[in-house]
Simulated assay, not measured.
Amino acid sequence: MPDNKLPRILITGATGQVGNKTIGFLKNNNEVEIIAAVRSQEKSRQFKKKGITTVLLDFDDELTHAEALKNIDRVLIVTGYTVDMLRQSKVFLDSAKIAGVKHVVHLGACGPDNTTVAHWAWHQLVEKYIESAGFSFTHLRPETFMQNLLSYGGKRVVRDGIFNQYVENATKSWVDADDVAQVAALSLLHPELHAGKTYRMGYDAKSYDDIAEMLTKMIKKPFQYQPQSPEVFLKSMQEAGADMAYMHCVYDHYKRYAAGTIPGADETFDNFQQITGSNPVSWETFIKKHKAEFDYH
């Protein structure tokens, strides 16, 4: 790479939660060039307004890959919630290898290396493919996103202080998507520091009853968690037209959370300070940050 050429970073999932926040962390850095991958010209407008270059990329259309990956040095790969993620990732990574991409940061899912939760394991298969292809890599494995309590599938989760989830009274490990994006950004900026690393990211263990109690105290209005059967989730996903191969896996892992049969479901990690130099967001901080969104009338 010529000395006068800035490293070019392609952000897939650029309009999504983590991809968009990663761009936010990187956009004012003058040591790299950021390129946002979008599926349509319409979605490119929000980035062009901010002076961010865009390319058209459709994971399902391999004919878009070569142009999108032209002169790209590093990639953040973020796939959707369908079983197609396996094929999409494999084909995209093959294209990235041909294009000369050096470093891949992959947004995966929870779990230790020996996880038996299906969709978590799928992400680990993608990780192994990245490694076998010879890329320099950083694997991100976030636990449950705190943002899932604000909205899920485009719908508000907490309504008039009441929210439903499908894991009984299980304690889960949580992470703010902002923290995941910050680690993604640093891994893309400094691959020499983060190459070969797998970062499990969960920093506050709470049950939904714990969170309801914290919300009640901090918002000064009553909040209540009302657990529902995982069957309710499955039916809602069917009605929403979601990819059921993937959602059956989510349904199964909700049942396992509820039964307490996911080892280490409440495990937290101490790597964030070392990676970023700051403390991860706790539930208390998250509620303060999103107080207006949790509040109701």
Rank of each mutant, 00 (worst) to 15 (best):
F233A: 02
M214T: 00
Q147Y: 02
P263I: 14
A245S: 09
S173T: 10
R74F: 06
S229H: 14
I77Q: 15
H65E: 10
H253L: 14
I11A: 05
I262N: 05
P280S: 14
N4K: 11
Y81F: 15
T22M: 07
Y225W: 05
E239R: 07
T82M: 03
N20M: 12
Y225K: 04
V38P: 03
A133W: 13
V167T: 11
A195W: 06
V38Q: 04
Q182P: 01
I11G: 01
H123P: 00
V104E: 00
P2Q: 15
T276E: 01
D58K: 10
D58Y: 10
T171R: 09
G19L: 09
Q274I: 10
V281W: 10
D3A: 12
K289Q: 10
T198C: 08
H253Q: 13
K289P: 00
S236N: 13
R256D: 06
E192G: 02
F233W: 03
K217T: 00
I34F: 08
A185L: 07
K235V: 13
K50W: 06
H106G: 03
F92P: 04
L26I: 00
I72T: 05
A181K: 04
A68I: 03
Q182M: 10
A265R: 12
G196P: 01
K155V: 06
Y257V: 01
M218P: 00
F294W: 05
D178N: 09
S40A: 06
E239I: 12
V175E: 01
V180L: 04
P263Q: 10
L215E: 04
H123C: 00
V101E: 05
F269K: 12
M146R: 02
G19Q: 13
F145Y: 15
D270R: 03
F25C: 08
T144W: 14
Q226L: 13
I9D: 01
Y203N: 03
M247D: 13
V250H: 08
Y251N: 05
N28I: 00
Y203S: 01
D113A: 13
A37V: 10
H194I: 09
T22Y: 06
T22H: 09
K21R: 15
L107Q: 04
A245L: 13
M214Q: 09
C110P: 09
H297P: 12
I98S: 12
G100M: 12
Q46S: 10
T82C: 11
N271Q: 07
Y254K: 06
A259G: 02
N71S: 12
P191C: 08
H194M: 10
G241E: 07
I219A: 01
K206Y: 08
I262P: 02
P112K: 14
A109E: 08
P191A: 01
S89E: 02
T82N: 05
E231S: 07
G153D: 07
G80E: 15
H106M: 02
T171K: 13
Q124K: 13
E31P: 02
V83W: 15
M85C: 10
E131H: 08
N20W: 11
T116A: 10
W174P: 00
K27S: 05
F47R: 03
G19D: 07
E293N: 03
V75I: 14
K50R: 14
Q182N: 11
Y152W: 14
D204W: 09
T79E: 06
D94Q: 13
M218N: 05
I211D: 02
H119V: 07
K235W: 08
D179E: 11
V75Q: 08
